[in-house]
Computed example of a mutant assay.
Amino acid sequence: MTFEEDILIAAYRLHQSLMTKGELHKRKDPELYRLYSDPEIREVLHRVFLPVDQAIIVKVEEKLYFVPEVHNDAYSFTNEELRKEVKLATNKEVYLTQFIWMNVISEFYGEQFLLTGETRSFIKVDEILNKVKDLMGKFKKLPEEDRMDLAVQYELDIPGMLDVWDNLHEVTDKVKDLSKSDKKDYGFILKGLRFLENENLIVVKEQEEIVMTEKMKSIVGQYYHQETRINEIKKLLNDIGERERREIYA
């Protein structure tokens, strides 16, 4: 199919703006935003530019987001960038933070979602803390060979995550500002969640409840059923439990 020159130019303008800014607001960029309503321009974007970019465009209310596909390294954060953005000291802390994010997604898209198609309205930070603490305990109980199998299969630095987690202290009642206590388990989780807040993916209410934004729902919704990496989250968490049970009954 061929496209008129003016359509190609308009699509290119919109594509370049989304690619460089990451998002477009109807209020701030009304002219560019309107271009997306043209079916021919959308077709150029989806048939020509986005397949090359390995990205999708997600529309949420009156905003457009340029979202890289899960396996797209070109637009993904590097470990160095994540260390800087989240204020982490080592790659091991990056891997633990990413594991925490995986568990947040898993909780929102858990049993309730499978049964009803509806995500949970919120989850408690305490739930994530207890979930991660439980999984770290299960990792420790596994034979080293099983830990390494899981590490390779799911591209996780399990020994590194355990090292970081073991050096975090539990929160006590004496801690007044949890957000500044990132050497404690609860504070470290809040630190990782703050990055998701800055990306407008979640809202953390009073350092206790996590709520997904419409942006997060739209992005995860694009990937959850068909994207292997997202589905692997569930498989990983189930795999840990299965291996632990095999050890118990061995």
Rank of each mutant, 00 (worst) to 15 (best):
D166N: 10
F188A: 01
M161Q: 12
K184A: 08
K183M: 04
D177S: 03
K183R: 07
V164T: 15
H169G: 02
S181D: 15
W165I: 10
I189M: 06
W165C: 06
V175H: 04
V171E: 03
K180R: 09
D163P: 08
V164G: 07
D177W: 09
D185M: 07
K174S: 14
D177R: 08
G187H: 03
D173T: 08
D163Q: 12
D177K: 00
D182R: 11
H169I: 14
L168I: 09
T172V: 09
D166Q: 14
D185A: 09
D163R: 13
N167S: 12
F188K: 00
D163T: 13
D163S: 13
K184I: 11
V171G: 00
K176T: 11
K183Y: 03
K180Q: 13
V164S: 11
K180V: 15
H169S: 09
M161C: 12
L162A: 10
K174V: 14
W165Q: 03
D182K: 05
D173C: 00
K184T: 14
I189D: 02
G187C: 01
K180E: 14
E170C: 01
K176G: 07
Y186K: 06
G187A: 01
S179V: 11
L178K: 07
L168G: 10
K180S: 15
S179C: 10
S181Q: 14
K174Y: 06
D166F: 00
L178D: 06
D163G: 11
M161N: 13
K176Y: 12
V175M: 04
L162T: 12
D166C: 02
N167T: 13
H169V: 03
H169Q: 11
D177F: 09
D166G: 12
D173Y: 01
L190A: 05
D182A: 01
I189W: 05
L162V: 15
F188M: 00
K183I: 05
V175S: 05
K176P: 03
